[in-house]
Design a binder for these strands. Structure first.
Lengths: 219, 219
DNA sequence: TTTAAACCTTAAGTAAACCTTAAGATTATT
DNA sequence: AATAATCTTAAGGTTTACTTAAGGTTTAAA
């Protein structure tokens, strides 16, 4: 897990970095909005802690802009303001949570974890094996980072492999799993596997001659 | 949005159904726990309003059981009891909120909204994803900064996408969420999607062939 | 209350993607 | 080299989704 901390108070930042390090969280600390924007464009983060009171711009506008641009990461906002209206305003423009300074670093850590957990609870429907990734909630498949467009049957077959957790599947099992009892009198499974290999790589699905197929580690 | 109301007082139920209908919420009203259990197994809901005092069983046990079985929907509980202990007990066994009779229907509606929003991690009334923005309090939709005029059904369908948090929705789910049990024997969802795409852009809603549709990032 | 406008549901036609076949080619095994 | 298993290809035929338009219903305005 990797968090982006945007904060110009070095002492405070240091405290956060250390506290989160103890939790096994990698924190990248930047002290300006400009740097933050650049980092967000080029790096992957799990969450952002954003101080709204930095001198080099308007933090609220930045937050709004991120949300408009589809940044969906959890964002916790830090401000000097303590009143309820400010809090509401923050949530309105897209923050996930809010802390007013001064705050106990342990509280920040707790909230961060809660938010990431919430986020995780929603999308732990990911399968990942070698270079293959399947997002079950979106029915999307990525291979070596690239989105692969699969037909319904191809997707079904691949999902069966993913769910078989490294076991060999016979052609018969595959047929049953994807067709149910609607028997299929042909080699269509073979054809779908052929297409899957073509769209990704031949090595993705290994043939176990005389028995069936198995999903293979890819890189 | 589709809510399951479990309540044996017909007059009260009618009031709730009508009030929520004005808010664009589809309410399915059932008058027994048995029916509710069955409905929950077979249908998709966004939330449940549960009267604990029905004659055909123990509402608290039912609630507990649902939670044990992994039902994570927001549930608002209605009871005749007014004391604080009862309220705490309800929350303990898995309710998200509590109302004691008699209550103002408007309050129920407000709490329902708040809870559903919270559930979706939107602690604000704005949804923003790519170039699409929805203001739930005003029922307004903006695309690329421009106000888009949508009909009631178009708006409902779009809101379901917004609240599905990046998941694929099957045509069936969309139908259930916007029509409830008033089965619709046609392709009207397809038509509404067609209109939404026409008013904004084709890319807004991606079709996942053989499965359903998903809201896509737009710019 | 009447009238007009907007809207929703249908249904049917069209186009595209997809699935199953089957047959020939290739590869592994004996 | 012979045989069996698997791969590859391409062509119907089928399913799925898109589009359009008409009729009926609701909503709003006069």
């Amino acid at each position: 897990m990797r968090v982006l901390l945007v904060e110009d108070n070095k002492l405070l930042a240091q405290g956060v970095v250390m506290s989160l390090a103890k939790e096994g969280v990698q924190v990248d600390h930047l002290a300006s909005y400009k740097q933050a924007q650049a980092a967000l464009n080029n790096e992957d983060f799990s969450a952002i802690i954003l101080d709204l009171g930095l001198p080099d711009g308007n933090g609220e506008d930045l937050l709004k802009q991120w949300r408009r641009n589809g940044v969906s990461l959890p964002i916790i906002v830090l401000t000097a303001n303590t009143d309820f209206d400010t809090k509401l305003a923050c949530l309105d423009i897209g923050a996930d949570d809010y802390l007013s300074k001064p705050f106990d670093v342990r509280e920040l850590v707790a909230r961060l974890r809660a938010i990431i957990r919430r986020q995780h609870g929603l999308d732990n429907n990911l399968f990942s094996f070698g270079a293959l990734e399947i997002d079950f909630t979106r029915c999307e498949v990525h291979f070596r980072g690239e989105l692969v467009s699969l037909s319904r049957r191809e997707y079904q077959v691949l999902v069966e492999f993913a769910q078989s957790a490294g076991r060999v599947l016979t052609r018969n099992q595959l047929e049953q799993l994807t067709y149910g009892w609607d028997e299929v009198g042909s080699n269509s499974i073979e054809v779908h596997i052929h297409h899957l290999r073509k769209k990704m790589t031949t090595e993705l699905i290994k043939t176990v001659r005389g028995i069936g197929y198995i999903l293979a580690q890819t890189s």
